[in-house]
Design a protein around this nucleic acid. Sequence first.
DNA 1: TCTGGGGTCCTAGGACCC
DNA 2: TCTGGGGTCCTAGGACCC
Length: 435
Amino acid sequence: METQSPKPSQRAYLLADCNNFFVSCERVFRPDLEGSPVVVLSNNDGCVVARSAEVKALGVPMGSPFFKIQDLVRRHHIVCFSSNFDLYLDISQRVMKVLETLCEEVQVYSVDEAFMPMHGMHEQELMGLAFKIIKTVRNHVGVPLSIGIAPSRTLAKLASHHAKTHSENRSVYSVMQQGLRQRLLRENPISEIWGVGRRLNEQLQDEGIMTAWDLSLCDVPAMSKRYSVVLGRTIAELNGVDCVELEPPTTTQAQIMWSRTFKDRLTEPEDLCEAACNYAARAAEKLRALGRYARRISVGIRSSYFGNEPRYAASASLNLDYPTADTRTFLSATRQLVLQLYRPGIRYMKAEVLLSDFTDTRSFQSDLFVAVPSDEELKRSDQVMGTLDSLNAKKRDTVYLGAQMGLVKDKRFTNPEHFSRRYTTCLDELPEISG
DNA sequence: TCTGGGGTCCTAGGACCC
DNA sequence: TCTGGGGTCCTAGGACCC
């Protein structure tokens, strides 16, 4: 009789990662595009934010400016989509739901990735589960996944990257065994490691640390001191020590930002005010959706980083007298900040609005020198904002405030040209089936 | 001509207090 | 009047992520 080997006590992580996520979402409703080159573009169709395997094979890097690949697009008949976040978010939620039916714990890390911690499972069981996850998501949602399996999150990320780029692994790669782990580390440059960005990559390479393996051999206390505690943790993780904590999502969100590049450069203060006010209104909407109040608002405006024109970037903040979620308060603060930052002779390309210093309630220390609103005024503010949100939930920009006017009227600020439809979240845009 | 939009976390430095 | 160190809190800015 076969004896059961004891259950391992070691923890393991599965990292499920959607392949070319935005492209895969578009293909769910355009199965005819399977096998064809497809890209998804950023806001204003500025640059490439997702590429199908066929486009990657053509050598188009992530983030390429769209205008630079026009030629390739024509030659290879690349299909282009403007990003359609309503659709991607909805598909993402469907993927996560399927994961939750198959795994006890799912830690959503980003729109297209989730970690699933596992205890006391043999490698074979982990592999079996991973293949089952991939098959179920493919059948129920239609999106392809890759899965990495490892004793730490950092290694699981590296393993899933390996699974994606080496087709012989059939979309799952496990480095639970020491030997494979070492091979994975030796084969990957440090730039592939989660937590090593452009800057660290340069600094570490100057020290002769080239591969993930090199980094894994470094002394943790010394590197923590020389660089940061974050890099120290990364090194431990590469050695299979599980030490990166993941914050529980949303409840701790500390700030809300809204920023966009304008379609055309803006030079007039009034135009900038309009743009920034529109962003502030969007940020305020998100704040109310979280049921929170903000005490601080920051506004930034900047010129292009490119070309020879004068460069300028500045931001400023305002602490509000009391926590609020009222768009009108944010709009007057935004206007004040923009006018304070504005310098003539600059061609502005971008504005951003950041709300922070949140509270869950609106209670505040009253201050002898600050005029605070009465309970009656606060109640009215909630009512007005509630009405605004419910009208706009049905159809965007049904109701907006005077300061935002220009934008909605003339569409100067945003204008993507390749929109796919919101197939799953908007009744007017459901997919059609022809007989 | 045309170059993303969100977020989080960490660190350094200044202000202030004891 | 001058000298000092340590702690806390806040903010700005950098680095990183997808």
